[in-house]
């Protein structure tokens, strides 16, 4: 009986001291707080940027609202790549980031389903659903894509009738779960999601007409933490985002790229 305890303790001690692999957060590593809808484009962006420079990127993915709250609490994120402009602007107002907020891409909404539904009908597809069929939307409180999905439903006069069928994902990422798993018959998500290699060919999607909602201007801002700790890397990454190469990646993922802001 004595042996297992001593053995176990020795193993514990050994693993306490062990380094957990490659050093993280070194001077050349940028931690980029990334809105959930951008994560797929970010994966390509990371590869391209790391190939061109000596800097490394670690993406932390969540909803823009949560990432903003974490930055306010002192999270060591160098940049916020947000799903709108409101949150990065609020970081400047609270003194946690240094302006300006730059719009790096405009996002589009799509309706996505993994069921055999007539997507050719566009938004009218929603009128064909049975009363038990659920429609997934990102939480309009803290996910900009959710806010605009609701706006589109209202613009079409469908909101009041369909309200009881809506289910809310905490971010666009959880909304995707509802759609992919089939828990929701159909859902609103970002075009960048359905164009990502992870889900290519999974189900069918159709774009939501752009006159039904406000363009989703996605802003990026450098945090105070980033400007103080990794100013060169932050600058290099911002330049890359707006370079022809960076903007092409965004375009590949279905974003419209800004023509000056």
């Amino acid at each position: 009986m004595r042996i297992p305890i001593i053995l176990f303790l020795a193993m514990l001690l050994a693993s306490c001291q062990s380094d957990s692999g490659p050093a993280a957060g070194g001077p050349n590593t940028l931690v980029v707080a990334t809105a959930a809808n951008v994560q797929f484009a970010m994966a390509d962006m990371e590869k391209a940027f790391e190939a061109r420079t000596d800097f490394e990127i670690d993406a932390v993915v969540s909803s823009t609202g949560k990432l903003t709250a974490q930055i306010r609490q002192g999270a060591p994120y160098d940049l916020l790549i947000a799903a709108n402009r409101k949150y990065p602007e609020s970081l400047i107002a609270s003194g946690d980031a240094r302006g300006p907020v730059q719009t790096y891409a405009l996002g589009s909404l799509v309706l996505w389903t993994t069921r055999d539904l007539p997507v050719g009908l566009g938004m009218s597809l929603l009128d064909e659903l049975g009363p038990g069929d659920k429609i997934a939307v990102a939480n309009p409180e803290n996910a900009p894509y959710g806010t605009e999905s609701i706006r589109a439903l209202r613009a079409r006069g469908q909101f009041d009738r369909l309200q009881s069928q809506l289910i809310y994902g905490e971010s666009i990422a959880q909304t995707n779960q509802y759609i992919v798993s089939g828990a929701a018959a159909v859902g609103f998500t970002a075009k960048s999601v359905v164009l990502s290699p992870n889900v290519e060919g999974n189900g069918q999607w159709i774009t939501v007409p752009e006159n039904l909602y406000e363009p989703i201007k996605q802003g990026v801002v450098a945090t105070n933490y980033g400007m103080e700790n990794h100013p060169e890397a932050v600058q290099a990454f911002l330049e890359f985002l707006f370079s022809a190469e960076g903007q092409t990646i965004f375009r590949d993922y279905g974003y419209t790229v800004p023509i000056g802001d």
């Binding site: 957990s20 692999g21 490659p22 050093a23 993280a24 957060g25 931690v31 959930a36 994560q39 797929f40 670690d58 932390v60 993915v61 969540s62 999270a75 060591p76 971010s171 990422a173 959880q174 995707n176 779960q177 992919v180 999601v193 990502s196 992870n198 889900v199």
Partner: peptide, 20 residues
């Protein structure tokens, strides 16, 4: 959820599922 600092396995599962 910072890689190498605070991203442990259970969080990584959540993260990877979110990322499909």
């Amino acid at each position: 959820n910072i890689p190498g600092k605070t991203r442990v396995a259970s969080i990584a599962i959540y993260d990877e599922v979110e990322g499909l």
